[in-house]
Nucleic acid binder design. Structure first.
Lengths: 203, 203
DNA sequence: AACCTGTCGTAGCACTCACTCCAATTCGGA
DNA sequence: TCCGAATTGGAGTGAGTGCTACGACAGGTT
């Protein structure tokens, strides 16, 4: 009992299923993600899917969690500091674009999460609750950063700014999906909007 | 041949089907909207649905169009001018909240449209294209208004502001669905953001 | 060797899906 | 009154749904 050894393709299969499910669910939503399609796309039979995941609900929830974890770890990595001295505004914009690029690199949890937010079916999927919790996590992190950055603002105004940030990110993601909106330009714009709103709030 | 007369409950049935489909599709999305459910909810058999609409795709597209037309007509109605003299900023916020309230009164096309934007399945539904066209219509109207209101801004900046407005509206709608966000407060916030960004752009 | 546990393949369950066929019914116009 | 078009009723299509039962087979452990 030195350690838990993997038999056959155990963990690898799990990952393949997750990857397939992420791709399909990101494209077609909750109802549109059929087990048979995930099976076909991952090359594993349905029974294997049900061996690794309790049911469809469990699978979708796992997709959201995995994708979010990947993004969140990516964020924790040392933020590269721009060499040249820049104004605080430029630094802010730079940071914004960094977060944004990371977000749009692994957008599965975001797209799927937003879809689940929009659909409110009778019995809500676990993944929806998970995504709402994820949002709270993101909000509290943003709150900490903004409290340190906008030292002149009252807590209420910080809260408004945090809400605004989420609103802008979601909206930008949607706009990106709807028409072809340049992402860097988009994140520059929402950074500008946050700074502009902060100034308005200080008045 | 004086005029086309309705037999039986022709047009009325169509409306009932549309209403039922709007409610279900708004709650469950494209895939989640089953004909049998629409049938049960409208009290009409499947054959009636297929008499009035070519197929499911056609039905969903009709739901989006109908809901949008209703909202757009609502907007064209004479905008009530606030009695007391207010600052331009307050007027702007007031107008924003008016549009917003109308939007959230008949949100079927918005919710469904955003869902369709997020899902990009292989063969995209007609309703998705329709919704993208609707967005263009809304954008050009916003552009006209902003051009008249922000007389100091260059066309490029106006364009940024128009994009920002759509981004903010979509994001607010999502935030409203996600957590319980007060709408008036939300629209006040995005009005502030637009004004703040406009000031930043003028710098 | 025998054993055990985790993984895969096959087949199939009851159910729902979008959609169709056609006969019955309802009504306006002649 | 009867015609014919509009609309509805209901049964039924093949395909697909989530999910399960169960046996085969692979390792590693003893």
């Amino acid at each position: 009992m030195v350690g838990i050894k993997k038999r056959a393709h155990g963990e690898a299969s799990r990952q393949r299923i997750l990857a397939a499910a992420a791709e399909i669910a990101g494209e077609r939503g909750y109802e549109g993600t059929s087990i048979s399609l995930v099976s076909k796309c991952s090359g594993l039979p349905a029974s294997s899917i049900y061996h690794h995941f309790k049911d469809k609900d469990d699978l979708i929830a796992a997709v959201v969690q995995t994708s979010f974890d990947r993004w969140f770890h990516l964020l924790q990595e040392p933020t590269e500091v721009p060499e040249e001295a820049e104004t605080p505004e430029e630094l802010f914009q730079h940071a914004m674009q960094g977060i944004g690029r990371a977000l749009f690199d692994s957008p599965d949890f975001l797209r799927l999460g937003l879809m689940l937010v929009l659909e409110h079916r009778p019995e809500e999927p676990t993944a929806r609750k998970d995504f709402l919790n994820i949002r709270k996590t993101v909000m509290s992190h943003t709150r900490i950063i903004y409290t340190a950055y906008f030292t002149d603002l009252k807590p209420d105004d910080i809260e408004s700014l945090v809400t605004l940030t989420l609103v802008l990110s979601d909206g930008l993601f949607l706009a990106h999906e709807a028409e072809n909106l340049d992402l860097d330009q988009g994140f520059g714009l929402i950074a500008l909007a946050i700074l502009g709103t902060a100034e308005q709030l200080m008045k």
